[in-house]
Amino acid sequence: MAGGAASGGSSQSDTYAGARVWLLLPAWATLLILVVAPVGIMLVYSFLTKEFRGGVIWEFSWEAYDQFFFNRGLFGDEPPRIEWTYILIFWRSIWQAGVATLLSLAIGFPTACFIATRAPRQRPIWVFLVTIPYWVNLLIRTVSMKFLLRDNGPLNEALLGIGVISEPLHIVNTNLAVQLGLFYSYLPFMVLPIYAAVERYNFSLSEAAADLYAPRWTVLRRILLPAVKPGIVAGCILVFVPSLGSFLAPDLLGGARNFMIGSLIEEQFKGNAGNWPFGAAASMILLTLVLIILLFSARQQGRQEAR
């Protein structure tokens, strides 16, 4: 989605070069004040001392990060041991987001290929069909998913009705439900970049490979997949990153035992039980993780283009 609109062609129009400061000012002002500055302040907050009723005391402290990574016993006087609770929550989030990403890839890749090989005039219609659900409120979609997957919901009733199962499947409040929810939330993000890549792909390469004795699935693996790899990487990131920090799917579908980063962070800012510096620190760690992934992929894509 963040595709390279900035790296336009060589013929760069400069009709409004004179006014560009004024044209950019509102965007810069809004985003610097409402996104960049807040992230900076969040970083500061993560090094402050917690106030017990929400908020912070303006006193420097490592406490939040220390609490995230180390356990010093109930009274803080024991030698530090690694604290696994939060690391495990992060790990679980990564795992859940990863599974959701793979699920999306497994469904999204064939879908994208199929759409990209329709007649040119049909393609926008298929793309549109795939994107509509994304624009429907995520909350409503997640609730709908929960409704569908309930123990006595339509899915189980249908499966029981046709006799595939004899007992209702317990899906809600399991890891699987969260994975399905995440998969469902971000599937269009997988389809779109892969679709764009396959649409640009020159199918005479496939014919050349078949002409050189490669069977159909070998053509897919050896020629098509490498050629559309940038699209696949982009799709995986677009699904993985929002899944990692998602809140609704784990909260509504996962129940209390399937906590993810989003819920952990949210909890720190709810009511009086919260710990703002800790929430800010967890957010910083999540943001760092995401930035590392983005940088890594940007470098990967850059290398691809350099070829």
């Binding site: 400069d14 992230v39 302040i41 989003g262 962070i265 943001l287």
Partner: peptide, 30 residues
């Protein structure tokens, strides 16, 4: 897109798409 080539062009584009890259929950907290 119409302001010619300038040094902050890529940065401007990055800034505009920043809310898409930062996880929503982080934006919310911040």
């Amino acid at each position: 897109l119409r302001g010619g080539r300038f040094r902050l062009r890529t940065v401007s584009f990055g800034l505009v798409s920043l809310p898409l890259m930062v996880p929503e929950i982080v934006t919310a907290v911040a």
